[in-house]
Simulated assay, not measured.
Amino acid sequence: MLPTRPIAFSIAGFDPCAGAGLLADCKTFEANQVYGIGILTANTIQTEDSFTALHWEEGDTVRQQLEVLLQRYSPRVIKIGIVQSGEELLTYLELIQRYAPTAFVVWDPVLRSSTHFDLTSPIEENMLWAILEQIDLITPNYPEIDLLVTGTAPPIAKAKYLSTACAVLLKGGHHPHLKGQDQLFTATAHHVFYPQKIYNTTKHGTGCILSSAIASYVALDYPLFSAIAKAKQYIEKTIGSTSTLLAYHV
Results as ranks from 00 to 15, higher is better:
F51P: 05
T102S: 13
Q64N: 10
T139N: 05
E124W: 04
L128D: 06
L137P: 05
L148G: 05
Y92D: 12
L111F: 13
F117I: 09
R72G: 09
Q64R: 13
A159D: 08
T139Y: 04
Q64W: 03
E133I: 00
Q97H: 04
E48N: 15
L95V: 14
D118Q: 14
S50N: 14
T120F: 09
G59V: 11
V62S: 10
R112S: 10
D108T: 03
R72D: 14
A130Q: 14
K158D: 03
I82F: 02
V105E: 05
K79T: 14
P140M: 07
I135N: 11
L70W: 01
V83D: 05
R98I: 10
Q64C: 12
E87G: 14
K158R: 14
A53E: 13
T52V: 08
L132C: 07
Q64G: 01
D146G: 04
L137N: 07
S50Y: 08
Y161W: 08
W129S: 02
D136M: 04
Q71T: 13
R76H: 15
P101V: 15
S163L: 00
H55E: 06
E124Q: 12
R63S: 15
M127L: 07
I138N: 02
L93M: 04
T102E: 13
S121L: 11
T61M: 10
W56A: 04
L90V: 03
E57A: 01
Q97P: 05
T152W: 06
L54Q: 01
L90K: 09
